[in-house]
Structure formats: structure tokens, C-alpha cells
Amino acid sequence: MSVAHLLVERAGLFDTIQDSGRIGFQALGMPVAGAMDRIALRLANALVGNPAGTACLEIGVVGPTLRIEADSVRVAVVGPVALDLTTAPGGPATRVDADRSHLLTRGQSLRVGMVEGASTACLAIEGGFALAPFMGSLSTYTRAGVGGFEGRKLRDGDRLPLTLDAARKREERRLPGAFDHGAGPIRVVPGPQTDHFTDAGRAAFFGGEYTVSKEADRMGIRFDGPRIEHSALGPDIVSDGIAAGSIQVPGAGLPIALLSDRQTVGGYPKIATIASVDLPRVGRLPPGTRVRFAAIGVAEAEDLRADQERRLARLLADLPVARPPGGIDLVALYERNLIDGVVWD
């Protein structure tokens, strides 16, 4: 039994364990859940050398303070977030970079600050967490209290068991720069209930500017903005399945984008579905962000996604070695038995 763990000295606002989602049980009403930002999940795992889809800690808005209670741990946080490393309790903190891996040792504490300009970030641990999957996945779905760590967000004092007692010997890696999640209007594919909206209603949605409201969480985002008029078919349908990124419009006429923790079926008409290329971007939109929506076709959406996957694969195939802050990495020197002549990337 592994005793290596991370101690949650102070929990963040909404930290949950997430992987690629719980696939194959929607027919039983079980939502997929999973990481809000699939790209960050993939990048963070790659930085610590994990297989894609290994469960990570998703940081919601403000992150936790984690004390290393293992010989050593390799960790990477991907996202616009400040990280402070404390070596001794009450001691001075050193700012360290996100978007790269770090080798931390027993007793050190990593404080993950507020995510700036986004709602989520992703923290990966080499080897992942020693937790039992539920229905094939470690994704936390808090509404049913299943998956992840006791089916809930982290609390002060939690001990997250780790798979590895110590980090493996390897070089630290970094992203060459923040991955471009995309800019401009959010691309959406119209449908499936286009006929439940008037021409004016569709024009309002595709022509208007919308703001992410405070009612935004892992289930979905309510937008404020121009009201969308329903056609004579009205704002109710016989419930049908809800794809990731569906944008439903209840009777009040304001759109709701349905994200990772979305319900499996629903009874409001859906005006459009967010193209998968832009879903990670939407998964990190903080309240107050202004957005527009642009219509594209299914084939174009598939092409854009394929381009994004190629861009990701190229990036991951050649992750640069991370220079240690201040120049010389003594640990790396020791491990490589090098005295001089170190050549950086």
C-alpha cells in the first residue's frame, strides 16, 4: 500500500479530480463529467510524462495549498495561475512557473493561487492518484457524490493518495508558450432544434453579444444578452439527449451552454452546439467575459478540430526541457553525473 500522498493544507474554491470523463453510461442517466478544458488536461499530463487522460486535479477559480508527503513528486500546473513554493512551514515562498513540470520534495508546500482571466487550470501529478475508478472513470461528479476523491471537491485536511512514492528520473519539461485556445467568435453548429426559433430569434443569437453570467459552473454557463425568440413550436420539447456544448434556450430566451457535468437529457430546445475545437475555451470562460457566436457546418467543425489535434500533437512531440530558475539545476546535474558542459535546449 502506498503511503505517499498530498496533504490539502488549504482547499481552493472548487478543486475536483477529473479525467477524460465517464464514457458509456449516459443511457443510465450518468453524466460524462470530466475535465472542462481537455487541452489543459492533455498538456499537464504530457509535462509530467503521464499517458493522456490520466486523472488530474482541476482547479476551479482558486487553487489549494498542497503539502508533499512523499519522497518526491513531479507536478505541473497548466493555466494562467500563480504558484508559490514553500520549503519549510512558515518559511518564505518562492514564485515558480506554471506551464512546466517541477520536482518537489517531502515537506514542501505548493500554493496554487487564483486563476487569472480563466475559470479553470489543471494540475497533474506524475503517476496520478491512487484512487479507485467508479464506472470506469476517476472524474468527480459532485451532484451524485461519485468519482474522484469521495465524490466531492477537496476540503482542508484531505489526503490524496499517490501512485508513486517518488518521482522518476527525467528532465523537467515546459510548454514553449501558452497554448492558443483560440480567439474571436465561438464557433457553433446550428441545430438540432433550429425550427423552435424565429428568424429574428436566430438573428439575435448569431448577431448579438453575450456575457458569461455568474451562474457558471461545471454543469453549464448561463449567458446574459439579447433575448432569443421562440417560434410557434415554443420553448418545450419532448426531452432528448444533450451533446457536449449544447446551447439550450428555455422560455426566458437566454442561452445556456451545457458543459462537462451536463444532464444527459433535457426538455428545452437547443439552438446550436459549440464546435468541439472551441469547447475547451468555453470551459475556461470566467464570469463577465463577452462573447459572440458564429455559425459553421459540421464538416468545417470536424476540420477545425483535426487541425487543433495536429497542432497539439506537434507541440507534445517536442516539449522543451525546462531550465531551472536562476540557471543551474543541481539536482539534474547530480542525476546526470555531469560536472560541466551542460547544454541547454
Binding site: I23, G241, A299, A301, R305, A306
Partner: peptide, 21 residues
Amino acid sequence: VETVPSMRALLVCYDPAIARR
């Protein structure tokens, strides 16, 4: 990837990295 039945429709979910509509 999976299918989601409802009263009157079946949602067919697919991975666009593997299949195209």
C-alpha cells in the same frame, strides 16, 4: 463513443478524431 436514448430520439456520440459524420 456511446449512444444516449430518450423517449423519441437517439443521440449518437462520436470522436471526431476517429470518425467523421
